[in-house]
C-alpha cells in the first residue's frame, strides 16, 4: 500500500493480544509498527501479577506443555520479544480519541505531549476491565472504603501492600480464586467467596490447583440484590438475610471490554455488552480497524490473547496487501 500515513500499523494496547499482533506483523515483514499503551510497562494485566517467592503462579503456558508461570514473567517474556525488534513502543501514552475515517489516533504522553498519528491499519487490543458495582445491577448498599476491584488489589500488592486481613470476594471465576490464594499467601484468612450464581464460575480443576494455597468457602445465591455493608470501611455483605463478615471486599471478574474509544469514534459496539461488532476476520465496522484479545468479550487467558492477536494480525496483513 502506498499511502501518506505515519505508520503501516498502529496497535492500541501492549498486553498479550497487542504484542501478539505486533510480533506477527513484524515477522511477516511489516515495517513501521507503533504500539501505544497507557501503562508504564509492556505486558498488560499479567504485569500486575507480581512474581514472589512462594507466590501463586496463575498464568498457563499451554504451548509449552501447560505449566504455570507468574504473570510478571509472562509480561517480561512479551517485553523480551519486543526488545529484539525495531517495533516502536510508546508507554505512558493515553489514547484520547480516534478518527475512524482518517484512521488516526490521538494520544498524549509526558514526553511528546499530544500527538496525532495515522496508519493503514489499526488494531484495538485494549483488553477489558471488571464490571463496576452499578454495572452488575444486583449489587447495592453502602459505599464504604476498602471495597476494591481485583486490579486495585494487585496494584497495591505490587507496592507490597495487601490491604485486607479477612477478605470477602464477590465473584467466583479464576480471577476470584487467584485473588483468594494471593491474599492467603500474604497472611490473610481464607476468603469468603460470594456470588450471584449457584456454582463457582471457576472450573473445578483450577479450584483444585488453588487449593494448594487456600481453601475459600463458596456461597452461591440466586438473588435480585446483595448489599454491601459498612459505614466507614467495608464490614460485610448482606444477602438473603444472611450477613457475611469481612474487613474488606474484592469485587472480581465479570469482564467488560474497554471499547469506549470505538464507541466515541462511531465504530459499532454492542450495548450493554460493549463488545465491538466484528466480522470473522476480526475487522470492525470501519475499514482498516481490527480488534484482538479480551476486547472481543469473554474471559481469556494471556496466552489465548497472544495467539488471538497473531490471528488478527493475519487479517491485517491480508487487508494491507489487498489495498
Amino acid at each position: 500500500m502506498n499511502s501518506n500515513k505515519d505508520y503501516k500499523a498502529i496497535i492500541i494496547g501492549a498486553g498479550p493480544a497487542g504484542i501478539g499482533a505486533a510480533m506477527k506483523l513484524y515477522k511477516s515483514g511489516v515495517k513501521s509498527i507503533l504500539v501505544v499503551d497507557r501503562n508504564d510497562r509492556i505486558g498488560g494485566i499479567p504485569s500486575f501479577y507480581k512474581k514472589k517467592k512462594g507466590g501463586v503462579r496463575t498464568f498457563m503456558r499451554w504451548s509449552r506443555g501447560g505449566y504455570p508461570v507468574f504473570g510478571e514473567d509472562f509480561a517480561k517474556w512479551l517485553e523480551s520479544l519486543i526488545s529484539e525488534t525495531d517495533i516502536e513502543v510508546k508507554l505512558d501514552s493515553q489514547v484520547l480519541e480516534i478518527d475512524a475515517k482518517k484512521k488516526s489516533v490521538t494520544f498524549v504522553n509526558p514526553k511528546d505531549g499530544k500527538v496525532i498519528v495515522s496508519a493503514d491499519a489499526i488494531v484495538m487490543a485494549s483488553g477489558s476491565r471488571e464490571e463496576n458495582i452499578a454495572e452488575r445491577k444486583w449489587l447495592a448498599g453502602a459505599r464504604p472504603s476498602r471495597v476494591m476491584y481485583t486490579k486495585q488489589l494487585l496494584n497495591l500488592d505490587r507496592n507490597d501492600l495487601l490491604p485486607i486481613k479477612k477478605p470477602l470476594i464477590i465473584g467466583s471465576d479464576t480471577i476470584a480464586y487467584a485473588a483468594a490464594a494471593k491474599l492467603k499467601v500474604a497472611g490473610a484468612a481464607d476468603a469468603i467467596i460470594v456470588d450471584n450464581r449457584s456454582n463457582p464460575t471457576c472450573p473445578i480443576h483450577e479450584r483444585l490447583y488453588f487449593r494448594f494455597w487456600t481453601n475459600p468457602s463458596f456461597h452461591g445465591f440466586n438473588v435480585d440484590t446483595m448489599e454491601i455493608k459498612g459505614k466507614e470501611s467495608a464490614t460485610g455483605v448482606l444477602v438473603n438475610g444472611k450477613h457475611f463478615d469481612c474487613d474488606g471486599i474484592v469485587i472480581s471478574g465479570e469482564l467488560i471490554p474497554n471499547s469506549e474509544l470505538a464507541l466515541i469514534g462511531d465504530i459499532k459496539i454492542d450495548i450493554p455488552s460493549r463488545v465491538p461488532v466484528v466480522n470473522k476476520d476480526h475487522q470492525l465496522s470501519e475499514s482498516g480497524w481490527f480488534a484482538a484479545g479480551n476486547i472481543l468479550g469473554g474471559f481469556h487467558g494471556a496466552e489465548w490473547c497472544y495467539f488471538n492477536g497473531k490471528k488478527t494480525a493475519g487479517s491485517v496483513l491480508k487487508y494491507i496487501s489487498k489495498s
Partner: peptide
C-alpha cells in the same frame, strides 16, 4: 476509619 488498608505488609 476509611483507610485503604487494614494493613498487612505483603512482603513474602
Amino acid at each position: 476509619g476509611t483507610e485503604i488498608s487494614s494493613t498487612i505488609p505483603s512482603n513474602n
